[in-house]
Write a protein that binds this DNA or RNA. Structure first.
Lengths: 344, 344
DNA sequence: TTGTAAGCGTTATCAA
DNA sequence: TTGATAACGCTTACAA
């Protein structure tokens, strides 16, 4: 015990238990053909020796690692963090393990992340940020790796796309603002230009026009609290100050609200109505009490993982024609009425 | 190309380039002895074939995977999320890759997480939450896996402990409250009972006593916004209402402040002074503008990773006696003066 | 149900 | 610098 071998292998366990290597392997493989007596015997020896299956070797021979890559930028952001939280949880429950790859949002770095995914023979990659090179995703696909895109605006062969329907949320927002008697609508967006974010803007404009209302659009920086402050400054110093602002995310809305209150001495919702998007925890904090649209994050995670497990079987029996098609899931972002819109 | 083999191996590349397998291996190994001509030749073939080194196989033979496990509960919490953010970033820059394991904070689930770390032959594990069984950490150690403990109160052989000095922060807080003319100090804590959190409480009491002040302690729930609200309710309905509260984390402080303002109509800092801990992003938002102590999170990450890389070499030439000792890093949490304390 | 043996894709050792 | 060969620890036909 003093001089224990660093790594104890299945062979060591087999020797100790007086059985064959394969018996040990089977004892550790769920659903393998092994007698209860054999299993307990092996387990006992394994316990005594401190044996742990080497997933590297297992993955090598099975050509499937059990690893799922999470490709994400700005993990510390509340919305992303909660997505990662639920994803890791459901992944673990399904017996998978999450690899977290931090990207700087550039498509380049996303591609680098997928390189890693391929290197580790990940079973799948879940992309929360950016959009990788088509060439690399093709390689992932060829390696039997499935790809899940969350709020990304592209469809890849053999992938699952998870989207939000921007239209209904926009219609609800316009309706709420109208009911509150607002006349001058605005949309506070970032300069990120992410398709899903641009869709929110476009949908809001469309729905406002349908209601006979004009929308002032202002765009700045990333989707952050600080951008919200700047956007507030820009919109609130305009000649025609808006009395209703739809912010592209809650983070932006929080920054906007703080600036409106503390710099412009405006009351929310009396002087200005605000709506956000995401339903991050802070939106529910009583300083903000922000009306917003909730992304069903936990649902995303649950459905993404169950899609993963369902498509697992196809792994071997690839039917190229069929697999060329991608799956798609579209969710509604439910409105969460709080106090940032009059009469909400 | 239609019928490309799912996985292209080093052998395939070697065949195509007309060289040996080992030449391919060397071409992909940084610092290996290979001529530039050979390298470009191999790389060309690899590119054409879409070859990617199999890290599973590489890890198997090198007995080192390049994986570092991050064991953490409540990832979506701002402080944890930012720690994970920096850790993953520095890990990646050092050529490692992070595996994220979500625990429910129980020591059991932390042990299960470390099991996974062993299964994947992780180079190291970084524990941000909970405290695993001594038995399992010993096994990690024997597998040559290093362990980094962040704000955990135990020292393991061959591990690095990262701690915060609670005393100086406490002294600073007491001084600030005194200078603000506060008479009735309180400490708002969670029921979590984590050693690092309890230390903050103990240190605050000690320093207050040294200054001749009494501290009312209230404890409730987890360290969350909601707990802060409850704690505020409890402390502010007391016969002797405190006029200065040190909150165990910023999250608690935010909840406390919101409740004090919106439910008790108290002004901060005029009626009550508040100090938090962590310096999460929200503490800087203008609704809170919270004076707090900043955990040097980025520094943690940088130092943790550089310790990891430095101790890498010892991997093979283990000198048991030497390695029994652990390293320890103690940081100061610098105060961030904002507006939640009078005269701050 | 169990054992035997042949890989899986690498890297490392040793000659050349 | 390059190439052959032996591990690395596991799973999985196939045979018993």
């Amino acid at each position: 015990m003093q001089n224990e071998k660093a790594m104890v292998s299945a062979q060591d366990v087999a020797d100790r238990a007086g059985v064959s290597r394969s018996a040990v392997s089977r004892a550790f493989t769920p659903g393998a053909s092994v007698s209860p007596a054999m299993r307990t015997r092996v387990m006992k020896a394994a316990e005594e020796l401190g044996y742990h299956v080497n997933h590297l070797a297992r993955g090598l021979v099975r050509n499937r690692s059990g690893i799922v890559c999470l490709v994400v930028s700005e993990i510390a952001t509340p919305y992303r963090a909660s997505l990662v939280r639920w994803l890791t949880q459901y992944l673990q429950e399904a017996g998978k393990i999450a690899m977290l790859i931090n990207t700087d949002r550039s498509d380049n770095s996303v591609s680098a992340a997928l390189q890693q995914a391929i290197n580790f023979r990940a079973d799948a990659s879940i992309i929360l940020s950016g959009m990788p090179d088509r060439n690399i995703t093709r390689q992932c696909y060829q390696h039997g790796q499935r790809i899940i895109l969350i709020n990304r605006d592209e469809d890849l062969p053999g992938s699952l796309s998870i989207h939000l329907d921007a239209q209904r949320a926009a219609a609800t927002a316009v309706m709420a603002f109208q009911r509150a008697g607002c006349r001058h609508l605005a949309f506070a967006n970032s300069l990120a230009g992410t398709p899903s974010l641009m869709k929110r803007e476009a949908a809001f404009i469309t729905e406002a026009e349908r209601a006979g209302l004009q929308v002032t659009v202002e765009r700045f920086g990333t989707t952050s609290y600080e951008s919200g402050q700047i956007l507030a400054h820009r919109l609130l110093t305009r000649h025609q100050r808006p009395d209703a602002v739809f912010c592209v995310t809650d983070l932006v809305a929080c920054g906007f609200m703080d600036e409106a209150r503390h710099r412009f001495a405006l009351r929310v919702p009396e002087d200005i109505c605000l709506i956000g998007y995401d339903n991050i925890a802070q939106a529910g904090w009583s300083s903000y009490n922000l009306t917003t649209f909730a992304q069903p994050v936990e649902q995303f995670a649950r459905d993404a993982v169950s899609w993963l497990m369902q498509t697992e079987k196809n792994e071997t029996g690839l039917t190229p024609q069929n697999d060329q098609q991608h799956d798609s899931l579209i969710y509604q972002a439910d409105v969460v009425w709080r106090g940032s819109v009059r009469g909400g």
